[in-house]
Simulated scan of single mutants.
Amino acid sequence: MNYTVVVVDDHTLLSQAIGDLVDNFDHFSVLYVCKNGQELLTKFKDPKNIPDVVLMDVNMPILNGIETTAHLKEYFPEVKVLALSVEEDETTIIKMLRAGAKGYLLKDVKKTELKNALLEVLKHGYYYTNTVSQVLIHSLENRGDSAFSLKEREIEFIRHACSEKTYKEIAGEMYLSPKTIEGYRDALFEKLNLRNRTGLVIYAIKNKIFVPK
């Protein structure tokens, strides 16, 4: 199976180079490259131009990566956005992830990691480098979240979620319906401002709800 990719970057030579690199990966092909988010959204008016993954720069004229990613999250949620930028400050990374990016890579990334990131985003829905994981942990610490604001059953659910159990298996362990467990999950994601199970595990480790062996 071949996956389609679009590169969005205002540096023409760089975007072409990235496109050529991805084109040489097995099972990947680049549909086209764009100079900014507005050009991408114009392309998206034709369904044939909608890819599986967008490699998105952050700082671009007209419509930047954060604004574009937020738009895609709302109107094209099936498209995975992987940020590829020279910006490595915490604020930019957090803004990009909150806008809907499924991962964040720096432009000096090795081609093997870029390929792995594309595969992981398609397979698992996200790809977090060690740098991004540390940024997420630091962000949680700065928000001053407290495990004590959680209910006992919520803490129990979080501990189960830190295992390899499926949500259905967790429902069985807690003697609750799968629908109730989904409710716990969604409520916790909203309460803690998290986007996925990985973020929940990071939160649990930071607050000592779960201690890895």
Results as ranks from 00 to 15, higher is better:
Val7His: 12
Lys206Asn: 08
Ile62Trp: 05
Asp10Pro: 11
Leu118Tyr: 04
Val8Ala: 15
His124Gln: 13
Ile158Asp: 07
Asn116Pro: 00
Ser139Glu: 13
Pro77Leu: 12
Pro178Thr: 14
Ile205Glu: 14
Tyr75Gly: 04
Asp9Lys: 07
Lys110Thr: 10
Gly37Trp: 06
His71Cys: 08
Leu21Lys: 13
Tyr175His: 14
Glu120Gly: 01
Val211Lys: 15
Leu82Trp: 00
Ala70Trp: 04
Pro47Ile: 01
Glu169Cys: 09
Leu21Ala: 10
Leu118Trp: 01
Thr166Ile: 03
Phe148Val: 08
Thr112Lys: 14
Lys73Cys: 06
Tyr75Cys: 11
Glu120Phe: 06
Gly199Ala: 02
Glu88His: 09
Glu39His: 11
Ala70Pro: 05
Gly172His: 07
Thr69Leu: 03
Asn207Ala: 07
Asp20Arg: 14
His27Asp: 11
Ile205His: 05
Gly103Val: 10
Glu39Arg: 10
Ser85Cys: 01
Gly103Tyr: 02
Ile66Trp: 09
Leu114Asp: 02
Ser29Phe: 06
Ile62Arg: 11
Val121Asp: 01
Thr4Arg: 13
Leu63Tyr: 06
Val86Gly: 09
Asn2Tyr: 10
Gly37Pro: 05
Ile202Met: 11
Leu14Ser: 13
Ile181Tyr: 06
Thr91Pro: 01
Glu88Leu: 09
Leu63Val: 13
Val5Thr: 09
Lys102Val: 12
Val121Leu: 00
Pro47Cys: 05
Cys162Gly: 02
Val22Met: 03
Leu55Arg: 04
Arg185Pro: 05
Leu105Ile: 05
Val135Gln: 06
Asn130His: 12
Leu82Val: 02
Ala99Gln: 10
Pro212Asn: 07
Glu169Pro: 08
Arg143Trp: 00
Glu190Gly: 00
Ser177Ala: 15
Ala70Cys: 07
Asp108Trp: 03
Val121Trp: 00
Ser163Phe: 04
Val132Asp: 03
Gly37His: 13
Tyr184Glu: 09
